[in-house]
Simulated scan of single mutants.
Amino acid sequence: MPERVSVPVLGATTNDWNKDSFWYEPWGSSGVHKGIDIFGKKSTPVVSTVDGLVLYQGNLQKGGNVVLVLGPKWRLHYYAHLESIGVKGLAFVKSGSTIGSLGDSGNAKGKPPHLHYSIVCLLPRFWSIDRTTQGYKKAIFLDPNLLLVGS
């Protein structure tokens, strides 16, 4: 059984995201959706799902305001479309600590506020590769539904 992590949007439940959105296609310029979008009220706190080290906090064209946390098992936890960022780079965060707030930054501008949450494995899981579009990338992208408590 894989380790479990808390939902990163405070107060969100499994009703706030579509479990089938991971690897959904077609998905814009990225082809397939390599995470899940958790919807909620703008400015809702977004919390770290793991204890870890903030490797990046800043702005990216598609992701908008983003935070990237290196957690256990060499997994990167990517939080995108934040309204605001509440952590500094190279800071240690605890699971459940606030790292930002829910928004619509980046290519989510004008869409309902949501958090794009992805998990990237730095140690590839080659057995996860399949014949779906970009299925070879499943060696590094982990389905968040498998880890989220309550999903």
Rank of each mutant, 00 (worst) to 15 (best):
M1P: 13
R4Y: 04
S6C: 09
P8M: 04
V9K: 02
L10M: 09
G11C: 04
G11Q: 04
A12P: 01
A12F: 00
T13I: 05
T13N: 01
T14D: 11
N15H: 03
D16L: 00
W17A: 02
N18Q: 09
K19G: 09
D20C: 00
D20M: 00
E25K: 14
P26H: 04
G28E: 05
S30C: 01
G31W: 09
G31A: 10
G31Q: 12
K34N: 12
G35Q: 05
I36C: 03
I36N: 08
D37R: 06
D37E: 14
I38A: 08
F39S: 15
P45A: 15
V46T: 06
T49Q: 05
L53A: 03
V54T: 06
Y56N: 14
G58K: 03
G58A: 08
N59W: 11
N59K: 12
L60Q: 13
Q61E: 14
K62A: 12
K62F: 09
G63Q: 08
G64S: 05
G64E: 13
G64W: 04
N65I: 08
V66D: 05
V67C: 01
V67D: 04
V69M: 03
G71N: 07
G71F: 02
P72D: 15
P72E: 15
K73V: 08
W74R: 11
Y78M: 04
Y79C: 01
A80N: 09
H81N: 12
S84V: 10
I85K: 04
I85E: 06
K88C: 01
A91I: 07
V93L: 00
K94P: 01
K94Q: 07
K94L: 02
G96I: 02
S97V: 03
T98C: 04
T98A: 11
T98N: 09
T98K: 13
I99P: 00
S101Q: 10
L102P: 04
A108R: 12
A108S: 14
A108G: 06
G110Q: 10
G110R: 09
K111P: 05
P112N: 12
P113N: 09
H114A: 11
H116S: 12
S118K: 05
I119T: 06
V120A: 01
L122V: 13
L122S: 07
L123Q: 11
P124W: 02
R125V: 13
R125A: 10
W127C: 02
W127Y: 13
W127L: 08
I129H: 09
R131V: 12
R131N: 15
T132S: 15
T133Y: 11
Q134N: 13
Y136K: 13
Y136I: 14
K138C: 05
A139F: 03
I140G: 01
F141S: 04
L142N: 05
L142P: 01
P144C: 08
N145W: 07
L146F: 02
L146H: 07
L146S: 11
L147N: 06
V149Y: 10
V149K: 14
G150E: 11
G150P: 00
S151Y: 10
